[in-house]
Design a protein around this nucleic acid. Structure first.
Lengths: 353, 353
DNA sequence: AGTTAAAATGACAACGCTGTCAAACTGCAT
DNA sequence: ATGCAGTTTGACAGCGTTGTCATTTTAACT
């Protein structure tokens, strides 16, 4: 019933170690031996025992994915991206939803790492921004990759002298650029009074998106008005509240567009507009961020900035694996900075005259 | 740096085996010894090594969750419910999204089980309905729990004679009852021509919901008309298509309510209605199933049948654990049949006169 | 052919824990 | 005190793999 490496070794007429080499794709195995072993593996339907490999080996065959994100679409995309890479590499994925606010968060994560002897960790925002967690990981010497909002600051000034740049374990999503682009889109449509409904203030993405939005206004000689900025959270409810707050006063007449911090906020704003009998996009343009499936299921469909989360997380996993297993292959195809692209749908239109 | 069971044993002045007993909560350990060991564990911050436990023990400390479901909200809820139980029990969760159509699915799952030596498996629909997978699991002798649509058929006729009823590894969601209730709700509102936009035909939940709907009609002397039934899939797009198909012909005037197979279908129907300039709920009532967050974010909010997926999956995990670890405790609090409760919101109203 | 370095393979001891079974305690009735 | 059953503890051998290092084979030269 249970086939061990020993069985395969006997069947193939080689030593256990050689079988081990084959299943681990170690270099120094003759092609002939390799085939011989592989055939035995197939004939016996051998399944390497993960527990034993984890115990005997230097690091385990599992990586972790840590997240604190209420957005189901986001989480699923992240999981699937990492998972697809894990499958290829023969790794397991340990998922760990958690609460970023918890002061003992880094301890909890440390426990998880030690228990499962994780080979590495993928950190999503906002956890990827928390210094205490980073410090803990550095102390533990665990490989990790951070998903961050922004651009890679470590510009390769001296590509020859310093091939190892700092921050080479980060994947960036350029929310600044995305926000800039969306704002410009609105400006080009003739909008002059554009509001911004922010997500959680602690998230880097919030400040990045806000900055992009403000820069776009500046570059087009539009004034930045703090009354047009609503500070909320990344949730539908916050979008509803935000839109109500922004539109209720005399502002109502002036604001002709609202930039939602993400699709959920935008959907909430859409909802609120409906409550207030404001026609979208005739009277008010609304846009989101992320291009979650959600943004295609509102009425009208949301203009948003497309962000391929499953691709992003797949690259995060790639980057992690390139650091893990003695960086078997160089994998130079890893993209470390993603710039969302704007997707124009029906929720934005020309500014009302 | 790395604390082993041996370190703890020395520190506490007992044998390794005793420490092992303590961390596994085995019964025959004196209170005094227990406290002694626990203190050593705390002082040294000992973390049991999962790999070693898995390897040495009879079964591993990991269970699997298998799903093929496009609905992110559903998957996340399932994960979180099982995960919370895993945390309590000190188990790991191996998630495995997969494609139910794949003919080699059962092989893929078998491989996963053997590789990770899984202690058990939670199967969600539609995988939980596939006989080839069930057979494979029975052959392998792995503990598993199935999430199913319907009611527990194994009625406890002879509770004394046969305490072990069959199908005692299933958790049921009574979609029939839910559909019945929703349909009655609509009938009570005066609707006489109620359409049904089905989900995937292969899913048991589809036939269950359809049957509940039809029984309700029957019980209220309303005719069952096959033209009022749209066969689609559990997706937003299918909801759009379904509503269009149902409403386009001369039927349009007659149909006053559409039951969506789930919230996504209902949201799609809502979307389509908007396209066709049909007022909800004034001209048409629409209802969903599942009460996903989604149902609260449409305009208007959806009337639906609440189904606490995270609670359901938590009970599935409970049930699984009760079979796994020598059924340490009886856990008689496990609910095996869940009946969704109707949540009336703004998408249903009195039938137009 | 003879030598040498490099490549390929193998023997064996870990890895950190739990199962088995035997030993040492306990309390209680004699 | 003595014996006995029951309870609590410990010694030790695996679990199935990989790391280390020694050994054999191959290739590449004189």
């Amino acid at each position: 019933m249970k086939v061990t490496i020993n069985d395969v070794a006997k069947h193939a007429g080689v030593s256990m170690k050689t079988v081990s080499r084959v299943i681990n794709k170690e270099p120094s195995v003759r092609k002939k031996t390799y085939d011989l072993v592989m055939q035995a593996v197939k004939e016996l339907d051998y399944q390497p025992n993960t527990a034993a490999r984890n115990l005997a080996g230097t690091s385990s065959f599992a990586i972790g994915l840590v997240y604190d994100n209420p957005n189901a679409y986001y989480v699923i995309d992240m999981q699937n991206g990492v998972l697809s890479r894990c499958k290829d590499e023969g790794y397991e994925l340990v998922i760990h939803p958690c609460c970023a606010q918890d002061p003992d968060m880094h301890k909890e994560i440390a426990t998880m790492i030690q228990r499962s002897r994780l080979a590495g960790l993928v950190l999503t925002p906002p956890l990827s921004e928390q210094q205490d967690i980073i410090n803990m990981l550095d102390e533990l010497g665990v490989a990790y990759v951070r998903l961050l909002s922004g651009q890679n600051e470590a510009a390769p000034n001296d590509p020859d002298d310093a091939p190892e740049i700092k921050n080479n374990n980060c994947i960036y999503v350029d929310d600044y650029a995305a926000a800039y682009e969306i704002t410009v889109h609105l400006i080009n449509l003739g909008h002059k009074t554009i509001a911004f409904a922010c997500g959680d203030a602690e998230h880097k993405s919030t400040t990045e998106r806000l900055a992009g939005y403000q820069q776009a206004l500046k570059d087009h000689d539009l004034s930045i008005n703090n009354e047009l900025i609503y500070e909320g959270t990344y949730s539908f409810e916050s979008g509803v509240k935000g839109a109500k707050a922004l539109l209720k006063d005399n502002n109502a007449a002036k604001i002709t567009a609202i930039l939602g911090g993400n699709d959920e906020i935008a959907a909430g704003a859409l909802f609120a507009s409906r409550l207030m009998n404001i026609a979208i996009p005739e009277q008010l343009s609304i846009s989101g961020f992320e291009d979650s499936p959600f943004s295609r299921q509102t009425w009208p469909k949301l203009t948003t900035a497309h962000q391929a989360n499953s691709v992003i997380s797949e690259h995060a996993a790639r980057l992690l694996f390139s650091k893990t297993r003695g960086s078997r292959k160089q994998d130079k195809d890893i993209i470390t900075t993603f710039t969302p692209t704007i997707v124009v749908r029906e929720s934005t239109g020309p500014a009302p005259v």
